[in-house]
Design a protein around this nucleic acid. Structure first.
Lengths: 336, 336
DNA sequence: TTGAAAGCGCTAACAC
DNA sequence: GTGTTAGCGCTTTCAA
């Protein structure tokens, strides 16, 4: 049986309050008493239980992270790293709640297991409806968004997707490309599509430029991006000379398999990604860098501030993106 | 202010005990009463706080996952997915505790924040000393290992690293390779090296075969694996004809950059990995598949059984591995 | 089937 | 600087 604070108090010949203080505010206890307490604690193999304090303080010391899928992709893994880093050292648990399908989603918002059971809710990369936000807000719990397009968050961090994709478009058109194709995976309709701004941003950036044609093509989740790309490329007479992928992970397989199809990057085709995720540097993929880890650290800090009742001087923060030009983009081949 | 169980009791005209039962054991309350309670709860926007019950039950409903690094790699991400899936639906929180460096490690084992604050501890992929295990065992908390070489766990799941790497060695030697090089990243010495069996297994498998030379080379974490591989390849006169990487992620960059160096896979060089992680299929890397998600699911189930006092019929479980032959291996070129 | 009341292990206000 | 004591919000005997 685990020793309780009373056992330690008895053993050390002090009161439970003193034991409690010896642990939580050491400087409020004389050095001598503290030593006695610590020794008794050691002997009894005692350590304070977080649960009791939590009950007392009315705080759960938990922060819920809502993610759109139970698969932890590159982005989500970085988010978890950043959040965990900050929250753990502040004594909070990070609890990952995948809201996979419409069912899980409804259940979550219905039961709202959050009420009194989490001190803050962080939503990463999925769109959430106004009704859901309102529901969440009834709990008076800080709601922080990470790369979410929606409104209504207490605080948020994110990148400017439109600005990011515009960098890509301008880079390509500066190289001489006039016919660009944007490829993205469609999502479960009920999940929302938080980075949809990237798609519309692409079209806007293209239309800003004279003589530039930008088209978009969606593929089903799970579709092979290489096959999708080839289909798009070979279907039309005015084939695009550059392919812009919604994220790096979609573009990378192209580097292996395009050669089989008699095409070389960037000679025959320029390719771009978005994220700067794993292996992007190694393959030489031109992309836009975003730093989810940094965003998560900022999000966690905001969450802590909000939980502790401090007001934020900058609740909504936009993180910079940077164009990373590498070997996958070049001037288009002159038409034969 | 959040409504308490008393508010609901008052509103519904019943006792707090009845409200509690209406939620935790609905069948112990008459349908009529239950309906009244639920309606009151709805009106007051009440839901039970897990914290109070937790305090009462003496269980924290938390499971700690100890990982060796704060970076979530492919393996660890899959582990988290599997654990979270099972634990969450059983009402447990998964708490990720990176034990990054020696300092964090010592602090952890010294303070053992686990005591009374987690119902089980799961250790993933890092070696843990007998002394640390003993320390952990003083807490009487189930200790579950995932791919840990150490002894002393209450339960464990893992693969047979030696059998896995032997598959690779036999595949290559069957193709005709006689000179193999094994490349791995060295780890912080204090971190242990849980998959060290892979290295020794490689050497053993080679020595079992006549005329086969197996060498190993370690690289510093952070070193470019391509540069390391080239160095090894160009340094010796009897250059190896096959490179075996400790994990896929180390091998993949080779596929992009080796061509620059005038070498083709598998014509000039056979390459193998281990894991079957992201992009391994796309690049055509011959590898050994392991399924961390499945192992995590099993580990979580064992943890729950142990927490709930059930005995395991198979505490230590070895998961199968499978050789995946793809395009990165072929017969060695005949020496010119 | 329901209610009264005793805790779970600690913290913090208050008294000394 | 230290002790006393009343809760935190539930669950769970025990009685009715």
């Amino acid at each position: 049986m685990k020793a309780s604070i009373e056992d330690v108090a008895r053993q050390a010949g002090v009161s439970t309050a003193t034991v409690s203080r010896a642990f939580s505010r050491p400087d409020m206890v004389s050095a001598k008493t503290r030593a006695k307490v610590m020794e008794a604690a050691q002997q009894l193999d005692f350590s304070v239980s977080r649960m009791a304090g939590i009950l007392k303080s009315g705080r759960s010391h938990r922060v819920a992270l809502l993610v759109g899928s139970s698969k932890l992709d590159w982005f989500t893994s970085r988010i978890i790293e950043g959040l965990n880093e900050v929250l753990r050292s502040a004594g909070y648990d990070l609890v990952i709640q995948p809201i996979g399908d419409a069912g899980a989603r409804e259940e979550f918002f219905d039961e709202l297991p959050v009420r009194g059971n989490a001190d803050a809710v962080i939503v990463s990369s999925f769109a959430i409806t106004p009704a859901e936000i309102r529901r969440l807000n009834t709990t008076r719990i800080p709601l922080i968004g990470i790369n979410t397009a929606s409104q209504g968050f207490t605080a948020s961090v994110g990148i400017d997707d439109k600005a990011g994709i515009r960098l890509i478009v301008r880079h390509l058109t500066t190289l001489g490309h006039r016919n660009l194709l944007y490829l993205y995976e469609t999502f479960d309709a009920t999940m929302g599509f938080s980075s949809h701004n990237r798609v519309t941003g692409f079209l806007e950036a293209c239309s800003e430029l004279d003589g530039v044609t930008g088209q978009t093509m969606d593929m089903q989740a799970g579709d092979d991006p290489v096959d999708a790309a080839l289909t798009a490329l070979l279907a039309r007479d005015d084939a695009p000379t550059a392919l812009c992928f919604h994220q790096d992970s979609l573009a990378i397989p192209l580097f292996f398999r395009l050669r089989q199809c008699g095409m070389a990057i960037p000679t025959d085709l320029s390719v771009t990604g978005f994220d700067n995720s794993t292996f992007s540097g190694e393959v030489g993929l031109t992309t836009v860098r975003q730093k989810p880890y940094d965003m998560a650290v900022a999000a966690a800090r905001k969450a802590l501030d909000l939980i502790e009742g401090r007001t934020l001087d900058q609740p909504h923060e936009i993180f910079p993106v940077q164009l990373l030009v590498r070997d996958s983009t070049a001037a288009p081949r002159v038409r034969g």
